[in-house]
């Protein structure tokens, strides 16, 4: 499943994922945003793995925020934007 979200005032955030037993799996977040350090991208993917598909956007964003911690710098992407891209993937609309 594939979803895209152009964050207002930010960059494109893309989610590719599958759902198994009602949970997100094989999550790949991508896009033309900026993240420091670059290893933070994996933290986002791992944070979303196993999250219930029906969880609210707020819960998904909170999972991403908690995994990133205070030292990751984001430009053109936010935990909320990631949650929207995931939601769009679940609705499978680009």
């Amino acid at each position: 499943m594939h979803g895209e979200y152009k964050m207002p005032g930010g960059k494109l955030v893309v989610a590719d994922l599958e759902v198994r037993d009602g949970k997100l799996t094989r999550v790949w977040i991508s896009g033309d945003f900026f993240l420091e350090p670059d290893s933070a991208l994996t933290l986002i993917d791992v944070a979303l793995e196993g999250v219930p598909a029906v969880a609210s956007d707020e819960k998904k964003a909170a999972a991403v925020r908690a995994a990133l911690g205070p030292n990751v710098r984001m430009y053109g992407i936010s935990p909320e934007a990631v949650a929207v891209a995931v939601q769009r993937a679940l609705e499978d609309r680009a």
Binding site: V14, D16, S30, D32, F33, L41
Partner: peptide, 9 residues
């Protein structure tokens, strides 16, 4: 492509 972009996409 950028560091965080999907090759396929």
């Amino acid at each position: 492509i950028g560091r965080f972009q999907s090759l396929r996409n």
